[in-house]
Structure formats: structure tokens, C-alpha cells
Amino acid sequence: MSTFDDNQDMRAQSDELLLTGHTVPDEPGLVDLVATMRRTVDAPAPRPTPALAMLLRDGIATTATVPVRAAATARARRRLGRLWRYVAGLGLAGKIALGAGIAFAGVTGAATVGAVPAVIQAPARAVVNGVEHLFAPRSNVPVVPVPTSSATPGAATDTPRTTSSGERPAFSGHGPASRPTPGETSPGILLEGPSSQTARPGEATPTLPAQAATQATENADSGSATVHGKSDVAPSATPSAAARSDKAPAHP
């Protein structure tokens, strides 16, 4: 063992004595520093927070529910705050649409729920009856599938789903709300109405072969709204796009 190792060992022993609060000769500064730091432990204990004080007073069994309730309340407040921030961040059109939706849902609910007093239910029902015809299907007009002739791939996949004599009113709508979910019978797409009577700029108005129209009518009567026979219905559609047509949402 060299002199250097001896010095290292002695220094390590000296450090250990110093750190454990023993007096080490020739190092009064460090001894004072360590003593000062060790004295900080003798300072009065800080006050416990209310949550910890409750735990120390009641134990864990009775206090465990309090933080959970507080956390649930805090979560609910955060969600409400997020909702308000979302609504506040909407544009003017979004706020109008949201308000109209809420008003429509309120009126419809007041008209249909029997528990509502007649004073409220009667005018609400009158409003609903007033706008009901806008959504009702016209059964006297033959319903035919309208194939698309658009050359765009997205339009080529559109296959009309038709119904003519369904009891439920059919809505002519776009977007997720009008898409049938798997396992659910599609209510069909109403081809009548302003959107189907006027051709949009850039879109051709196709004419259907008689066979396709007949088959579509039969399918519609049997409850199936899908038109089979891709080559008859959508001549311009590619085979792969037509093969996907059963899953695609309808666009009039």
C-alpha cells in the first residue's frame, strides 16, 4: 500500500467522522458547518396540511373517501371548464348551430315527453307538427337510385341507398349521422327534395337503365336499399370502387 493510498484511507475515515457529527482536528470550519446543518433537524416541525392532519387524526379508513370525493368534484369542474372553453372557442356559426340544436332538442323533447305539462307540451307539439312535413317521405313519387357520374374517386364510390315505402321518415343527409352502422338497417336516402332535383354545377344528371331502376325498386320494397349490379348502376365507376359501394355512405 502506497503513501497515497494511506492518505486516501485516512481522508475517507476523516470524512466519515466529519459527516457523522464527530469532531475532527485541523478542520474546525467543516466541523462547524456540519454541526450547523445537523442542528437544523432540531427546528420545530412544520404544520401538517389539512389533508395530512385529517389522516393523522382519523387514520386511513375514514379519510380515504374524502380525497376521492374531492378529486371527483375537481374532475367534474375541469370537464365543465373544458366544455365552456370549447363553446367559447366556437365561431359565430358554430354557436348558432349549437344553440339551434339545443333549442330543437328541447322543443322535441317537450313535445314527446308525456310528463311535461300540457301548457308546455301543446305549443311544442304544434311546432314539431309544423316542421314535420319537411322531413316526411313522399311515398307517391317513385324512388330510384341515382348513380353518380362524377369522375372523382370519392364520388365514384357513392352508391345510392334507396327506400320508398319505409315507415320511418328518411332523411337526406350527409355525414356520420346519416351513415348506417354495421348490423343496423339503413333507413335509406330520400332522393326527393331540393338537393336531388337540381343538378349541381359540374355534375351530370345520369339516366338509369330500366333494369337497374326495376331492381332498385324491388330491393327498396324488400327493405334492402342497396342496388346490386355495379355495371348497370354506375357505368363510370371503377370495379374496385363499385365493390366498395355497399359500405360507402350515400350521396344524392
Binding site: T40, V41, D42, A43, A45, P46, L55, L56, G59, I60
Partner: peptide
């Protein structure tokens, strides 16, 4: 087992060094 008395004993044993550690 959630005993408040045991919590208090453990707390009183270690609260000062923990507070001194955080302060330092």
C-alpha cells in the same frame, strides 16, 4: 391497518429530518 396513532408516531419520528432535508 390505517391506525391514526401509528401514523402519528411515525410522523413525529421523521417529520423534522424530512423537513430539514427539504429546507437544506
Amino acid at each position: 391497518a390505517g391506525s391514526a396513532e401509528a401514523f402519528t408516531l411515525l410522523y413525529e419520528d421523521l417529520v423534522r429530518p424530512v423537513a430539514a432535508y427539504l429546507r437544506a
